[in-house]
C-alpha cells in the first residue's frame, strides 16, 4: 500500500509505468480509437510495432546523445587543458553559433550532404548534441574555483586526480544540464528524423498527418510525450543526486 502510494507520487516511476503501458498496450486501445474516429478504416497504426519504433527511437536519440557526451566531454576537457587552450575560442564560437541553427534545419541540410537513412540522422543528431555539451563542459570546468584547484595541487594531486576527483565532480551539474539539453533536443529531432528515412516514433505521426489519420498522429504523439516526461524526470533525479553537496540541495 505504502509502496503503491510512493509509486504514484514518484514522477519517474509513474512516467515509466505509463510509458510501458502505452508502448505495450496500444493495440488494446484499438476499440477506443475506433469509437473516437468512426470515419477511419484503420484506427490503429499497425505497419510497425510500437515497441520496435520506441526502441529504434531510443537507439537514435540515445546513441547520438551518448556519442555526443563522449566526444563533447573530451573536447571540453581538451580545450581547458594547457595543450588545447588554443582551440578554446574557436570551439566556443562554433558552439554558440551552431546552437542558433534550428535542429530541424540541421537535420534537413544533412540529407543533401549525407543522404537519407538512420546513419545520416545519427550523425546530424550527434553533431547538434555536441554543441550544448561542449559549451557546458567548458563552462562547468571553468567554474571550479581557483583556490580549490590550488589546494588540490598543493596537497599533491596530479593532473589526472585533479580532473577526475575534483574538477569533473564539481562541473558535473553544469555538464549534466548540457547533456539534458542535448537529450531533449535529440528526442524531438529523432521524431522528425522519420522524414529523412529513420524509423522512429515520428513515423505514425507523419503518416497520420499525410494521410489525414488523426488516430495515428495521437498514438505516436502520446508515446513521444510520455518519453519526454520520463526523460525530464530522469534528469531531475540525476541532477538531484549530483548536487547533493550544494548549499540549496534538498
Amino acid at each position: 500500500m505504502r509502496r503503491l502510494r510512493s509509486l504514484l507520487t514518484d514522477r519517474l516511476a509513474l512516467g515509466l509505468l505509463v510509458l510501458a503501458a502505452l508502448v505495450l498496450g496500444m493495440p488494446a486501445l484499438k476499440p477506443l480509437f475506433a469509437a473516437a474516429f468512426p470515419a477511419l478504416d484503420r484506427p490503429l497504426y499497425e505497419a510497425d510495432g510500437f515497441l520496435a519504433l520506441t526502441l529504434d527511437h531510443l537507439a537514435l536519440a540515445g546513441g547520438a546523445s551518448l556519442i555526443a557526451v563522449l566526444l563533447g566531454g573530451a573536447a571540453g576537457i581538451a580545450v581547458t587543458r594547457p595543450f588545447g587552450r588554443e582551440f578554446r575560442g574557436i570551439l566556443d564560437a562554433v558552439a554558440a553559433m551552431g546552437q542558433t541553427f534550428p535542429p530541424v534545419a540541421v537535420l534537413a541540410v544533412s540529407v543533401p550532404v549525407l543522404g537519407f537513412g538512420p546513419a545520416p540522422a545519427l550523425i546530424a543528431l550527434t553533431l547538434y548534441g555536441l554543441l550544448p555539451i561542449v559549451e557546458n563542459t567548458v563552462a562547468g570546468l571553468e567554474s571550479v574555483p581557483e583556490p580549490v584547484r590550488e589546494a588540490a595541487r598543493g596537497m599533491g594531486m596530479g593532473p589526472g586526480a585533479l580532473l577526475w576527483r575534483v574538477e569533473l565532480p564539481l562541473a558535473a551539474p553544469v555538464i549534466l544540464a548540457g547533456v539534458r539539453t542535448a537529450a531533449v533536443v535529440n528526442l524531438g529531432t529523432a521524431a522528425i528524423a522519420s522524414t529523412v528515412g529513420a524509423k522512429t516514433l515520428g513515423l505514425p505521426i507523419i503518416v497520420g498527418l499525410n494521410g489525414s489519420n488523426p488516430a495515428y498522429v495521437i498514438q505516436g504523439a502520446v508515446i513521444v510525450a510520455a518519453l519526454a516526461v520520463v526523460l525530464d524526470a530522469g534528469f531531475d533525479r540525476l541532477a538531484a543526486r549530483l548536487t547533493r553537496w550544494r548549499p540549496n540541495a534538498v
Binding site: 574555483p145 583556490p147 580549490v148 584547484r149 590550488e150 589546494a151 588540490a152 598543493g154 596537497m155 575534483v166 565532480p169 564539481l170 553537496w245 550544494r246
Partner: peptide, 11 residues
C-alpha cells in the same frame, strides 16, 4: 598547505 581562501572541496 593552507591558503587564505581555504579551497575545501565543496563536493
Amino acid at each position: 598547505y593552507v591558503i587564505q581562501s581555504v579551497g575545501l572541496f565543496p563536493h
